[in-house]
Nucleic acid binder design. Structure first.
Length: 267
DNA sequence: TCGTCGACTCGTCAGCTGCC
DNA sequence: GGCAGCTGACGAGTCGACGA
């Protein structure tokens, strides 16, 4: 399995300085099935060997020890304030974005909207209270920057062999943009939205058309909002997993230190 | 097979917020 | 202040599980 980590972001203040000639800040080689990490100023490539059963899954949190977790161990990998949770699913593509905080976002090939189903969204929803927007929350968490593509371009990541990133150009896109919906294994659905300035007709028709436009936009906004909400929930779940692992590691460390202390005390 | 129930998705409305 | 965007709340529809 191969995975790609793309970092489309501003410069991470915690990131090591890139090589002025190559632009590469750091490079971690692959040994013993460990991922291959190459960090550049704006691009981070994490290439997992095909025989590796691991995949980066979680959202990066700021100001935390950087860890790549495999099925069997926790493997410190990065010097940045990142935590990467690795599990075993094939055909993954990891995208990261960052504002002030570095984040990682995983796009599952063939399962772009998958996340834990252990808890029903209804229960989760009950836990959520007003308000800041999910975009704000995700930005605060460093986990949810949404890439905004121009209306005439669409980028697709297939995640196969690390060469699956393609950009499609929409020739019929208008200046006002077009709504593009894409689902894995399905064709593109590109509804054409009429421009408000081109409307001609009576006031009643204009009103009706405006209402239709508003409903259409709100429909799309609701979809987007729900998608962000899911992403936000996923971020929280991943964060919980990371913190639980950290907590477990700290407890183990404390236990071993206690044992060591008792041994030395008895001597 | 049918009715019920719970979970889930989707569209719409309403209220809030930020921007101009 | 008006407008657009975001999101909670609500209702309608669908689907699968389960018991009668």
């Amino acid at each position: 399995m191969d995975a790609i980590v793309e970092e489309k972001c501003q410069v991470d203040p915690l990131a090591p300085s890139p090589d002025p000639q190559t632009g590469i800040a750091s490079s971690v080689g692959v040994t013993n099935n460990q991922p291959h990490l190459v960090t550049a100023t704006n691009i981070v490539h994490l290439t997992l060997p095909s025989h590796t059963q691991a995949q980066v899954q979680s959202v990066i949190q700021p100001n935390q020890q950087s860890v790549i977790q495999t099925a069997t161990n926790l493997q410190p990998m990065l010097s940045k304030g990142n935590v990467i949770l690795v599990s075993s699913k094939p055909n993954s593509v990891i995208q990261t974005t960052q504002g002030n905080l570095q984040t990682l976002r995983v796009v599952e090939a063939g399962d772009s909207d998958s996340f834990s189903e252990e808890e029903s969204p209804k229960k989760r929803r009950d836990l959520l209270t007003r308000r800041p927007s999910y975009r704000k929350i995700l930005n605060d968490l460093g986990g949810g920057e949404i890439a905004v593509l121009p209306a005439t371009a669409l980028q697709i990541t297939s995640g196969e062999g690390g060469q699956g990133i393609q950009t499609l150009t929409m020739t019929n896109a208008t200046a006002g943009g077009a709504i593009v919906q894409y689902a894995q294994g399905q064709e593109f659905f590109v509804p054409v939205v009429a421009q408000s300035g081109s409307i001609s007709g009576s006031g009643g028709e204009d009103q009706a058309r405006k209402r239709e436009m508003r409903l259409l936009k709100n429909r799309e906004a609701a979809r987007e909002c729900r998608r962000k909400k899911k992403e936000y929930i996923k971020c929280l779940e991943n964060r919980v997993a990371v913190l639980e692992n950290q907590n477990k590691a700290l407890i183990d460390e404390l236990k071993s230190l206690k044992e060591l202390y008792c041994q030395q005390k008895n001597e």
